Simulated scan of single mutants.
Amino acid sequence: MSRRPPSEFSFSRRALLQRTLLGAAALGLVGCDRLSENDAVISLLDSAETLNLKTQRLLAGRESLAVEYPASMISPVFRPNGTVDPQTELYRQLAANDFADWRLTVGGLVRTPLELSLSTLRGMPSRTQITRHDCVEGWSAIGQWSGPVLGDILEQAGVHDSARYVVFHCMDQLDGQHDYYESIDMVEAFHPQTLLAHSLNDEPLPVGNGAPLRLRVERQLGYKMAKYLKGITLVEHFDDIQGGKGGYWEDRGYTWYAGI
Rank of each mutant, 00 (worst) to 15 (best):
W139Q: 05
S126L: 03
E182H: 04
D134P: 00
P206E: 10
L45A: 05
R14K: 10
Q93M: 12
L116R: 01
L229H: 04
A197C: 06
I260S: 08
S72F: 00
G61Y: 06
S126N: 07
D202R: 10
D239N: 13
R19E: 14
G108H: 11
S117G: 13
V77R: 10
L234G: 02
S12L: 05
L22T: 08
G61R: 04
S43M: 05
V187L: 09
L59H: 00
V159N: 03
L196V: 04
S146Y: 01
L195W: 03
L195A: 03
E115P: 00
D251Q: 09
I42L: 07
N52K: 02
S162Q: 15
M73E: 15
W102H: 04
P70E: 10
E63F: 06
R132I: 10
V235G: 01
I153G: 00
G61N: 08
E236C: 00
V235Q: 14
F9I: 06
M1R: 13
Y181R: 03
L215P: 02
V207E: 09
A100Y: 07
Q242E: 10
I142A: 03
W145T: 01
V136K: 01
A197H: 01
S36K: 02
E182M: 02
T128Q: 12
Y254M: 11
S140K: 11
L150F: 06
E89D: 10
R132E: 15
T55E: 00
Q56H: 08
P212T: 09
R122S: 11
A100W: 02
Q242A: 14
K227A: 10
L213S: 04
Y248G: 01
L195G: 01
D240L: 07
P125W: 11
S2C: 06
D239M: 02
A95V: 09
F99R: 01
D46I: 03
H178N: 13
T50C: 12
S119D: 14
L205D: 06
R79P: 09
C170W: 05
H169Q: 12
Y254C: 06
Q129D: 12
L118N: 01
F78Q: 14
S43A: 15
D134T: 11
V41S: 02
E49T: 15
C135H: 05
L196F: 08
A71S: 15
K245S: 13
L109R: 14
R214V: 06
G222N: 11
D185C: 05
K245D: 06
R132F: 03
G28M: 07
R103L: 12
H133C: 10
V149K: 04
S146T: 15
P206K: 08
L35T: 06
G143H: 02
T120K: 14
E63N: 08
A26W: 01
G28L: 07
R3N: 11
